[in-house]
């Protein structure tokens, strides 16, 4: 059904949300159980489908803990419009250089939703359309969030990157 590589990818996706290996494993196991129990018909895109289940389980888990919700509230009304697209520069963050240690710091700095977005964009190299399907948010919202995330990461690490280039 799912091979080892796929299971590890799901696990990493769950880690991008939880930043916790044990919780990520629990989420993945629960998601697989739900997938197997509930899916009575073949699915066109099982990978995206399972990721959506993992995401929803994580949202439920956070809600039970009464943690701040995943969906950010700022400009939500505008962002939710499918027609709203901010200009994005996909290469703008590719220039940012970080160490593996800084990657760890970055994941701790970001919210679960930002980590998820960064993971899907950077590691899985998903398009905004694909991310939109998994997160069930309009493409315009994803583009805007990605744009803001890139800006934030650039601000965090751009100075270091420039210094490294000069050095």
């Amino acid at each position: 059904m799912f091979d080892k590589d796929e299971l590890n990818k799901f696990y990493r996706y769950a880690i991008s949300l939880t930043q916790d290996g044990d919780l990520a494993y629990d989420l993945l196991q629960s998601a697989l159980e739900r997938y197997l129990k509930k899916v009575s018909k073949a699915v066109e895109n099982p990978n995206a489908y399972l990721k959506t289940i993992i995401r929803n389980l994580f949202i439920d888990h956070e809600r039970r803990k009464k943690v701040v919700p995943m969906i950010s509230m700022d400009n939500e009304e505008i962002l939710n419009s499918d027609n709203y697209v901010e200009p994005t520069d996909d290469r703008s963050m590719d220039d940012v250089l970080i160490t593996r240690q800084e990657a760890l710091q970055l994941t701790k700095l970001l919210t679960p939703e930002e980590n998820e977005l960064l993971y899907l964009w950077a590691v899985e190299e998903y398009s905004t359309a694909e991310i939109s399907v998994i997160s069930q948010q309009p493409k315009g919202t994803i583009l805007s969030k990605l744009h803001r995330l890139k800006k934030r990461v650039r601000e965090q690490f751009a100075a270091d990157t420039q210094a490294a280039k000069k050095g």
């Binding site: 080892k4 494993y25 590719d94 990657a103």
Partner: peptide, 25 residues
Amino acid sequence: NQIKKPIKQALKEFYSNKSLTSEQL
């Protein structure tokens, strides 16, 4: 761990270290 790399590559390496144990798999 201290070598600076493009962010995508750094994140890929960071996450590639996160794998299920053989028992979990």
